[in-house]
Simulated assay, not measured.
Amino acid sequence: MLNLRISSPTNLTAAVLATLSSDPAVSELASIPGASLRPQGDLILASVAREAANDLIDRLRELGVQHEGSIQIAPAGAWMSSRALSAQQLAPGSGADSVVWADVTQQAYEDSEPNWTFLSLISLATLIAGIAIILDSQILVIGAMVIGPEFGAIAALGVALVRRRHGLLGQALRALALGFAVGIAVTTLAALAARGLGWVSVADVTAIRPATGFIYTPDRWSFIVALIAAAAGVLALTSARVGGLSGVFISVTTIPAAANIALGIAFGVPEEIWGSVQQLLLNVAGMAIAGWATLLLQQVVWGRVSTGRSRLATRLRTRARGRRASSSTPGASGP
Rank of each mutant, 00 (worst) to 15 (best):
L135Y: 01
R174Q: 09
R163C: 07
A193F: 07
L20K: 05
T307W: 15
T212C: 09
H166Y: 09
L20E: 01
M80W: 14
L29S: 03
V234H: 09
F267T: 14
L85G: 03
I250W: 08
L63I: 15
S98P: 01
A332N: 10
I44A: 08
S201R: 13
L63T: 04
G167V: 04
L263S: 07
D136H: 04
V99C: 02
L245D: 06
G34M: 00
N115V: 03
D136K: 03
R220Q: 11
A203F: 11
G233N: 08
T314L: 12
E28D: 14
D55G: 03
G213D: 12
V202Q: 13
L140W: 06
G167L: 04
A185H: 01
R324K: 08
D103F: 07
L178W: 08
I289D: 01
T318Y: 07
V225M: 13
L63N: 02
L157A: 00
V104E: 09
W221R: 11
S86Q: 14
P39Q: 06
Q171E: 04
R164Q: 15
G95I: 06
D23L: 10
R163Y: 11
G41K: 12
A313H: 11
A193M: 11
V284S: 05
E271S: 15
A193T: 15
A18E: 12
E68H: 13
R165C: 02
S112Y: 04
S123G: 00
G179P: 00
N3Y: 04
A193D: 10
V277M: 12
A132Q: 04
I133P: 05
I215Q: 01
T187L: 00
A14D: 15
R165G: 01
S306H: 08
A236K: 06
G291M: 14
L281C: 07
R321F: 11
S333P: 02
V234L: 10
A230K: 03
I6M: 08
A76N: 09
P330L: 05
H67Y: 12
A313W: 06
T318W: 07
A258D: 03
S70A: 13
Y216F: 06
L245P: 11
V141L: 14
G196A: 15
